[in-house]
Amino acid sequence: QWIQSKREDIVNQMTEACLNQSLDALLSRDLIMKEDYELVSTKPTRTSKVRQLLDTTDIQGEEFAKVIVQKLKDNKQMGLQ
């Protein structure tokens, strides 16, 4: 999976804004449970939030991952090649 192969780059480069947009999009599509949303959003640092989101992606699967990839594209953060 692309996200896993780029995990380190995503953790380093995903902005707080992109992270929040991803969470909002996942929530609005019922792809993330409120508990998982809280787990991510209550982490103390941006990098720990991104790591938690990516860990959740492993469990949730492809549809979940597609939303995150789309948000990275929207925010022009796909220089993660």
Rank of each mutant, 00 (worst) to 15 (best):
K34P: 14
V50L: 01
E8F: 02
Q52F: 07
R51E: 09
D30T: 04
L19T: 12
Q60S: 10
D9I: 15
T56S: 09
V50I: 05
P44L: 09
Y37P: 04
L80S: 11
L26S: 07
K34D: 06
R7A: 08
D9R: 05
I3Q: 08
S48A: 14
E63F: 00
R7G: 04
V69F: 13
Y37I: 07
N20F: 14
D24M: 02
D36K: 05
Y37R: 03
F64N: 03
N20R: 12
F64S: 10
K34Q: 14
L39M: 10
L39H: 12
E35H: 14
S28I: 06
V11Y: 01
G61E: 12
T47E: 15
L39D: 11
K76A: 14
T56K: 04
E35V: 07
E63V: 04
R7W: 03
K71I: 12
R29D: 09
R46A: 03
T57L: 14
I32N: 00
S28W: 05
I68G: 06
Y37W: 10
L26N: 03
T45H: 04
I32K: 00
T47L: 08
R29A: 13
I59G: 15
K49T: 02
V67N: 03
T15D: 11
Q52Y: 02
N12T: 09
N75G: 10
I10V: 03
S48Y: 03
L31M: 10
A25Q: 07
Q70T: 07
F64K: 04
N75S: 13
A17V: 14
A25E: 15
E63L: 03
C18F: 07
E38I: 14
P44S: 09
N75D: 13
K66R: 11
K76Y: 09
C18E: 14
V50W: 00
Q60W: 02
E35S: 13
L53F: 01
D24E: 14
Q4M: 15
D30G: 15
A65C: 03
Y37C: 05
T56Q: 13
E35M: 02
V50H: 02
E8V: 09
N12L: 13
K66H: 06
R46T: 14
R51L: 10
K49C: 01
E8N: 02
E16Y: 04
S28E: 14
L31P: 04
D9V: 11
Q60L: 08
R46E: 10
S48M: 12
T45L: 02
T56Y: 14
D55G: 05
V67C: 08
L54R: 06
D36C: 01
D24G: 02
D36H: 11
R51P: 05
Y37K: 07
Q21M: 02
D30S: 11
T42Q: 15
R29E: 12
P44A: 11
K66N: 04
Q13K: 03
L54H: 05
L26G: 04
N12P: 00
N12E: 15
I3V: 06
L53G: 07
E62S: 03
V11L: 08
E8I: 02
T57H: 09
T56W: 15
I32G: 02
K43V: 08
G61V: 10
K43S: 06
L31H: 06
G61K: 14
V69E: 11
Y37V: 07
L72E: 09
I10M: 07
Y37L: 11
Q60H: 11
A65E: 06
A25M: 10
I10N: 06
D36P: 06
T42R: 14
I68E: 11
K43G: 06
L19D: 03
I68M: 11
R7C: 00
K71S: 14
W2Q: 07
Q21L: 08
R51W: 01
P44N: 11
C18A: 12
K34W: 10
L27K: 13
R29G: 10
E38L: 13
A25R: 04
K6A: 08
L39A: 15
D24W: 01
L53N: 01
I32F: 01
L23F: 02
A25D: 12
S48W: 01
I3R: 00
C18W: 05
V11A: 06
S5T: 08
Q13L: 05
D30R: 13
D58E: 15
S22Q: 01
Q21E: 12
K49Q: 01
L39N: 13
T56V: 15
W2K: 07
D58N: 12
K76L: 12
T56E: 08
E63Y: 01
D55K: 06
D58I: 14
E38A: 12
I68V: 12
Q70V: 02
E8L: 05
E38G: 05
T45C: 09
Q70R: 06
C18L: 05
T42K: 10
D30L: 04
W2R: 07
K73E: 14
K71V: 15
N20T: 09
D36T: 10
V50P: 05
T56P: 04
I59L: 15
Q52M: 07
C18T: 15
K49I: 04
N75M: 11
E62T: 03
Q4A: 13
L72G: 05
D36A: 09
T57Y: 03
N12S: 10
S5H: 01
S22P: 03
E62M: 05
S22K: 00
L19K: 01
E16R: 01
T45R: 01
P44T: 09
R7F: 13
Q13F: 08
S48K: 10
K71C: 13
T45K: 00
V40F: 06
L26T: 03
M33R: 15
R46I: 14
D74Y: 11
K43A: 12
V69M: 14
K43R: 14
F64Q: 11
S22G: 05
I10Y: 01
L54Y: 01
G61H: 13
K73C: 14
T15R: 00
S48G: 12
D30Y: 01
R7P: 00
K71F: 10
L19E: 06
S41D: 06
Q52A: 15
T56L: 15
K76N: 10
Q21S: 12
A17I: 04
N12F: 03
G61F: 04
L23Q: 07
L27V: 13
L26W: 00
W2V: 03
A17C: 12
L26F: 00
A65Q: 02
G61L: 05
L39T: 11
K66M: 11
D24L: 04
S41A: 14
V67F: 00
S22Y: 00
G61R: 11
Q13E: 13
S48D: 14
E38F: 10
I10K: 03
V11P: 05
R46L: 15
D9N: 02
L53H: 03
D9M: 08
K71W: 00
K76Q: 13
Q13G: 08
L27E: 14
F64I: 09
L72P: 05
V40P: 02
K34H: 05
W2T: 04
D58W: 12
L23W: 00
Q1H: 07
Q52S: 11
S48F: 05
L19F: 01
T45S: 13
L54W: 00
K76H: 13
L19H: 01
D9L: 11
L72M: 15
E16M: 11
F64M: 13
L19W: 00
K71P: 05
I10T: 02
V40E: 03
E35W: 10
I68S: 06
E16A: 04
S41V: 15
L72Q: 06
Q70E: 15
Q52R: 04
K73A: 12
Q52V: 04
R46P: 05
S22N: 02
L53V: 04
V50M: 02
L27G: 04
S5K: 11
T56H: 10
E16V: 09
E8T: 10
T57I: 14
D58A: 14
L72T: 06
